[in-house]
Design a protein around this nucleic acid. Structure first.
Lengths: 109, 109
DNA sequence: TATTTAGTACTAATTAATTCGTATGTCAAG
DNA sequence: CTTGACATACGAATTAATTAGTACTAAATA
């Protein structure tokens, strides 16, 4: 659901129409979902004309980071290293690949 | 639940007693959970004396890998690189740290 | 042997998450 | 004005997941 958010801001109708392409769903269902996301603090709303315009309450990066943390906690009891090991293994990463990433990150700092 | 598995093999009672230390839970609840895990193919059982002895149906690594993949699919639409970027950022990893990991992996191959 | 104990199978109750319907309000077009 | 389109609010129905109760069985033991 939240992925539809990465279009900046959207009304219930916007989301509804996108979801409808993939599966049968009721308008009010989407509304309820968005309201829940709002009360949970993931979205904030603002009146725009007649409808509410929802937008993310926090920067995407922050949310993603939270999800990663939660995953690491749950699966690896909080330590990130094993996750890295797995990634390196199953994607056959070599030093070069990682260097590229480190460089990307360093440039953006 | 499945984390309790990483003690090799266990009966319902074993698990029950560990869980009980942390929260009130019924013996049959644990049983049901383990049975579900079995029908889902995560555990397999074998009679041992009167009780069933459950053990993982697949190597832990394989399950973890599946969980990682599923996470990456859900959060990053299947591409692992953004996850790495996040990890590097939020754990302040430098080349050295990653080299260490790559070396670890290479040694174990 | 009669009774307690430790286990399973099966079912039921509870709780949480998802999905949707209906009532109602507002604005715009006719 | 009245009607239709589009929105929300609120509550209800549905489905899925979690938790637990009861009946029954076999072994252990008094």
């Amino acid at each position: 659901m939240k992925l539809v958010w990465q279009r900046g801001a959207a009304t219930v109708r916007d989301v509804y129409e996108v979801l409808l392409e993939r599966r049968k769903i009721a308008y009010t269902t989407v509304m309820t979902m968005m309201k829940i996301l709002e009360t949970k603090g993931y979205l904030k709303k603002r009146r725009q004309d007649r409808a509410f315009l929802y937008r993310p309450a926090h920067p995407k990066n922050q949310i993603i980071r939270g999800m990663i943390r939660e995953f690491i906690d749950r699966v690896f009891n909080g330590s990130a290293e094993p996750l890295l090991v797995h990634l390196v293994k199953s994607h056959h990463l070599r030093e070069r690949d990682l260097q590229k990433i480190v460089r990307m990150v360093e440039e953006s700092e």
